[in-house]
């Protein structure tokens, strides 16, 4: 009951925050110097066309009115306005580009979580072994290297020096995209049993996915390792082994769950942040996803697209934060029960 109340409260706050975010982004997007209508139509467009476009985008109205119209259209019709670049409704564009990015984030996120946690657990379990040293060094470099640097190095190594992976796009030329079901090529091709497309789509995902995952992976490995190593020396672990509880069951049942709490409260945010890091990574490998769309919107001052993409990302990010709070409250009774008391 209290948990439900807690979640509702968090959701209400999240909506407030998203409103704030939309205002912030709206203001940022409107202080762009220069006339967006003129930029969209080019220098040689006739004056009346520009005037028309400005009317169409309500650019002739004061900014609070523009915001009011935007909110009204969004809430009543789910309408985010027209993209100046693609000349299509922004929500359509987002719908089209989102699955590709989601696919990339999922693959990258799985790789990040599995490898990061595994490395952390193994190096805590075998402290001062070679795995531990390897993880330490990897973590230092993983955190210090921007994802675009990883990507450029990967492209050089696995695209050119030892060409085993494709460097551009979502699919190789000559391979037809699978039937649109989810929009995610790997899943759609699996569903339709098209192995060749599946394999090709997967190969295209590997490099950007790993490059994006490196930072979060390093962080997850580091946090998991230190949290687990910390707990292993504590009395509650010694006590259970003093009572002859098998090491394996201490490890699997107690230690693992307890040690993963800090990782779990960071990792989903790192995964959600992949949408953001994807802004650059997708642009580098020309991967047609939402992040590349957002990047080109930003670079081309495509007002409605900027606002649309950022609101979507903000919503995802905020929901993930709430999700983390719920998971952590579920895992750690101290969070759940002490909050209730106050």
């Amino acid at each position: 009951m209290n948990m439900v109340f807690f979640i509702l409260r968090r959701l209400a706050l999240a909506i407030l925050v998203l409103f704030g975010l939309s205002i912030l982004i709206f203001i940022i997007a409107r202080v762009i110097p220069g006339d967006p209508a003129r930029m969209a139509l080019g220098p040689r467009a006739p004056e009346y066309a520009i005037e028309n476009l400005r009317k169409q985008m309500y650019l002739d109205k004061p900014i609070y009115e523009q915001y009011y119209i935007w909110v009204k259209n969004f809430l009543t019709k789910g309408d985010l306005g027209i993209s100046l670049l693609t000349r299509r409704p922004v929500q359509e564009d987002i719908k089209e580009f989102f699955p590709a990015t989601l696919e990339l984030v999922i693959v990258s996120g799985i790789f990040m979580a599995v490898t990061g946690i595994l490395l952390g657990v193994v190096s805590a379990r075998y402290r001062e072994s070679w795995v531990d040293s390897f993880t330490r060094v990897l973590a230092y470099f993983g955190i210090a290297t921007p994802s675009f640097v990883w990507l450029v190095l990967f492209i050089l190594l696995f695209g050119y020096v030892w060409p085993i992976l494709p460097t551009v796009g979502r699919l190789s030329r000559g391979i037809t995209p699978p039937l649109h079901i989810t929009g995610m090529f790997t899943i759609d091709s699996l569903l339709t049993g098209n192995w060749r497309t599946f394999w090709d789509a997967l190969l295209h995902l590997i490099m950007p996915a790993i490059a994006l995952a490196m930072g979060g992976l390093s962080q997850a490995a580091r946090i998991t390792r230190s949290s687990m190593a910390d707990h292993m020396d504590k009395d509650y672990v010694t006590l259970l082994s003093a009572f002859g509880v098998p090491n394996r069951s201490i490890f699997m049942k107690y230690l693992l769950k307890f040690s993963l709490i800090p990782t779990i409260s960071i990792l989903p945010l790192d995964i959600a942040a992949l949408f953001a890091n994807g802004f650059i990574a997708e642009t580098v490998v020309n991967y047609p996803g939402l992040s590349r769309y957002g990047m080109s919107a930003i670079l081309n001052k495509d007002l409605n697209a900027i606002v649309g993409v950022i609101i979507v990302l903000g919503a995802i990010y905020t929901l993930v934060t709430i999700l983390i709070d719920i998971i952590v409250a579920y895992l750690d009774p101290r969070v759940r029960l002490i909050r209730r008391a106050t």
């Binding site: 706050l13 407030l16 925050v17 998203l18 704030g20 975010l21 912030l24 982004i25 940022i28 997007a29 202080v31 762009i32 959600a272 942040a273 949408f275 953001a276 890091n277 802004f279 650059i280 957002g294 990047m295 930003i298 670079l299 001052k301 900027i306 950022i310 990302l313 903000g314 990010y317 905020t318």
Partner: peptide, 22 residues
Amino acid sequence: MRISDVFLALPSLVLALAVAAV
């Protein structure tokens, strides 16, 4: 603190990109 929450509702790279582009 609610105002600061608004700024934290996005990964910092995206917000920085958006502002820098403007």
